[in-house]
Design a protein around this nucleic acid. Structure first.
Lengths: 204, 204, 204, 204
DNA sequence: AATTAACCGAGACGGTACGTCCGGTCTTTAG
DNA sequence: CTAAAGACCGGACGTACCGTCTCGGTTAATT
């Protein structure tokens, strides 16, 4: 086993890192993931190829980091308290609101191409998939867990329900429609999901 | 736009076609989808590259056809009346049974690699994705639609529920866990899904 | 040891071969040997890089073949009986004539760049050097051997002289001046060489 | 034209300079000239790359200096009065002696790799070639000029002979055989050269 | 003794070319 | 005419070095 002598991260060029993120995201949007080449990212970023290979093992990892950065940045721009589902006491309304926001994001072309690309790569490349889930998806799902627990405390959801599974009744159908084109996604659709699923969770 | 003068399908070599299916599936299992090259498929199948390009536009289409063939063959082997969900009158039991069977199939390594590969390609390649869904996924989902409608007729499911959406409460969570590695899949898990979701669909 | 499965020479593209020769020679003349890259040769010849690597192991070998081809072609153009030193009976005159012709060739820019490049590579790359000598240099030196032997038969050169060594008295000084820039080369210079050296070979 | 502000030679690290010479020579011997990289020289010498680029414009110049240093050092070790051909009154014997010594040096592996490398580079890189000739070759050739003039004074060589050309009858054949592998070199060979050539220069 | 200026080892950087691999096309030979 | 074989053009891959640059850290010479 030959290990590279890990480069000195403290001397890393911030400028290059940002340029690479931007180039990678732009190219994925413009020409799609498979036609996005490391060479093109380097050229567009005005960077040597080695600078990419020095810091990332593969194209997918570049894109993952770039996307995480984008998501973080977007979150920072958007809201002060970005990491929570509203808790107005009305669980159905809160879920409808957050799912509608998710629909909007999934339809935003700025996000669609790169996140679709990452999801695809994650399906086939398990290591990347797990990182994608751990860093991006799971934290968001955790918000649902929190909100559902709060609803359980308020007696709006059966106490024996596992929130980590319950949330999938809302989230997974949307995810599948989006990922696999198994159907259109819209506010009406997510509203319906909330309607159907919440009944199953409510106390008898 | 230059169209190729479609080759004469009647003179196509059945032997080559089967060899190509076998080689494609074997390679996807052995080295994964991205490292499965048309060249390797041709070599392994003992076939000229042109024979592949003559009949399929791209690697993904070869694999799709190969997989459809595999699925059909497997169904035929299994024998029974393949295209239906049992209808014992007990909707919950029937759904649990069919979902458990799905779990088993998803965990079968013979199917896992190629179907994962196709799903991934379908995420990013919309045209292929739609074909994958239309030819493989949707027919199976339709079985759920049928079974749910039957349950509606028997009064076990609210009449105003759209079965095409309702089925996603059972199917999509499983699909997402499998596709995105967001959690383990098991019989217990799908049983729980049926439990949670069915409550929401039952008449009050 | 992994051997490539030798490509089928009978299917080789003559067109590509000639284009590669032309491109290689042109580039060596234009930008010099070290800046002549395989990539540039391929681009200029309108050829894939692999087509070069398929048939030649290295840049130097391409150039060697290209130059041999050029030399052969030039020889064919020039004379009907190209492979002989004139034998008028006057050894000194004959040697002067052939050396003057050599000087002219060495000063011809069409030949200078590539042959200098090959000579240089041959100095450092023994395998190539030997091939260069065997295919190009030695055949020419052999002509001197023949002419000197004829002179020995005529009694104009000492019988105990080894022609293969004797020829170096005329040829090597010129070669060294040209190769190593140790002095200017001209007709007067080679005439002087013939004058000095021939005395040493003449019978007492 | 932008000129670098010439570095302060008085503060130059002697230690680095010697380490670079040693590393350069060692690498040329071990892996050959073309595979000797500036990076490897720096690494082997335990020196930053910039330290090399600060003091030398190119790899070839490093090697030239290193070799000049080696030659000087070797000469100093040998002791005697290095810069002269013996003058015993017997020109033939003196030339045989010095050429035999040259043969020995050319066959010494310590010298062969670097001097061959320099000669090769000099063939193709005129600027370096001229420096190589001026600093190393020409001084040695001048010794022959001196010895031949002395022989002319003694009446052993025709007065109208140009010694600068005459010396090439002895030296160039040896040089060509060595440089271009056109034949083996040995004491017997150089003795023969002296025999053939000297006759041509002797007064009638 | 403190300051300053340069060299120094180290190595990241933007680049270029390497030699390999494969996509998709075209050509040849056999059946 | 199909099919196998495989050469072809094109172009991305990941690697190796190029020559430049920036970063602390010595080390001398100047204050």
């Amino acid at each position: 086993m030959v290990k590279k002598p890990a480069p000195d991260a403290s001397r890393r060029s911030e400028r290059s890192r940002r340029a690479i993120y931007a180039a990678a995201l732009a190219l994925v949007v413009e020409v799609g993931y498979p036609k996005t080449t490391v060479e093109a990212i380097a050229a567009r970023a005005g960077v040597g190829k080695q600078t990419i290979y020095r810091w990332w093992p593969a194209k997918a990892d570049v894109l993952l980091e770039a996307f995480l950065d984008l998501a973080e940045q977007a979150a920072r721009e958007l809201g002060q308290e970005p990491y929570a589902i509203p808790d107005t006491g009305d669980l159905a309304a809160d879920l409808r609101a957050v799912l509608r926001a998710t629909v909007d994001e999934l339809l935003d072309p700025r996000f669609e191409a790169p996140s679709r690309a990452l999801a695809a790569e994650g399906v086939v490349n398990e290591q990347l998939g797990r990182e994608f889930v751990a860093k991006l998806l799971e934290p968001q799902l955790q918000l649902y867990v929190d909100r559902l627990r709060s609803a359980q405390d308020a007696g709006h959801v059966r106490a024996d329900v596992d929130p980590r599974i319950a949330l999938e009744l809302f989230v997974s159908p949307l995810a599948q429609r989006w990922l696999q084109h198994t159907g259109p996604i819209s506010h009406a659709y997510t509203d319906t999901l909330v309607d159907y699923a919440l009944n199953g969770l409510a106390p008898r």
